[in-house]
Design a protein around this nucleic acid. Structure first.
Lengths: 171, 171
DNA sequence: CGCGATTTCACCCGAACGGGTGACGCCGGG
DNA sequence: CCCGGCGTCACCCGTTCGGGTGAAATCGCG
């Protein structure tokens, strides 16, 4: 994200702040110096017959270049929005309904209750939330989760979910 | 989101089409006309004693303005890349290898580091294990996970994984 | 009926996690 | 040059989790 983190409601970035005046001042100064320099040159080596034209030409060229640079610098952003599409493959059968591997379930010896708990764990619910949803005490839920863990050989909820997923017990 | 989160591999689209030479030619012509005009003026009304300075000043100013205008004209508009996800149906492909939804990633503003941490979390690793694998301090890992949580709006590791999965950030 | 499996609950303790704050170095852009 | 984003790390505090033990109630089945 461009600006602040975490903010979801992010209005398009405002125009860049760039300080024109600073450049304008520098611009003026530079111009003065240039003119002074040229004048000094002119007075020191009065060698140009038609100095005026050459003089003007040089000044014009220099200032034109300077101007171009400045213009490029301060022309308001003029941003061009480029739409880039990223392909996000969505399986035709996105709704491919999941079927539990009953064999694996039997092999692991997970009871129905434990299976239910496991599903809720996989759904990201905390022990407390599971207890609330199933009208159980938190202790009970913890007991079940412990059993699930040992049957799945997991030491953490996430491991359990991962194991269960690769055993096709949950989608 | 500053949209610009874009990928690094950015082959910037070719430069804007605008034809510079036309402007350059016009620029030159205009310059010539201007100088000619000023010269005529000078010859016609030989009224300026120190015409050179004034002359130069005028030319400088005019050309500077011209330059600014030109610069603004040709400054390449900076591009703002907006990612858009487009659903591309893919054949049943059971082994459909996973591709991350970069748009979602940009939208959420997850940094590469955070994404890496998220992947390891999803793999079921504990904070300590992640720290060990990435040669980081546990505190650092915790900081990253915290950020991941707030960006994903999750309060638990499992919730984060679940969110990430449904946003197609991880398989 | 008795036995084993299942489900329910309690308590305790140490480890892990979540949340907050502060700080430092680096880098890239205005 | 200064600012902001990023990555790194520390410390603290409260909560949750994981693990262990124990113990009821319930139920299916022989």
């Amino acid at each position: 994200m461009g600006g602040t983190r975490a903010g979801k409601p992010e209005p398009p970035d405002a125009a860049p702040p760039a300080r024109p005046w600073r450049a304008v001042v520098g611009f003026g100064l530079l111009g003065g110096v240039l003119i002074a320099g040229l004048r000094a040159l002119e007075y020191r080596y009065l060698l140009l017959q038609h100095s005026a034209e050459v003089y003007a030409g040089i000044v014009a060229a220099l200032f034109a270049l300077l101007g171009i640079w400045l213009g490029g610098r301060f022309s308001r952003p003029r941003e061009r929005v480029v739409l880039r599409e990223v392909a996000v493959p969505v399986p035709v059968a996105a709704t491919a309904q999941f079927t539990r591997d009953e064999a694996a379930l039997a092999r692991l010896g997970l009871t129905p209750r434990e299976m239910g708990i496991l599903e809720l764990i996989a759904a990201g619910l905390s022990t407390r939330e599971i207890a609330a949803r199933l009208f159980l005490s938190e202790n009970t839920v913890k007991t079940h989760t412990s059993r699930v863990f040992e049957k799945l050989g997991a030491r953490r909820r996430l491991q359990a979910v991962q194991r269960a997923r690769e055993q096709r017990l949950i989608p």
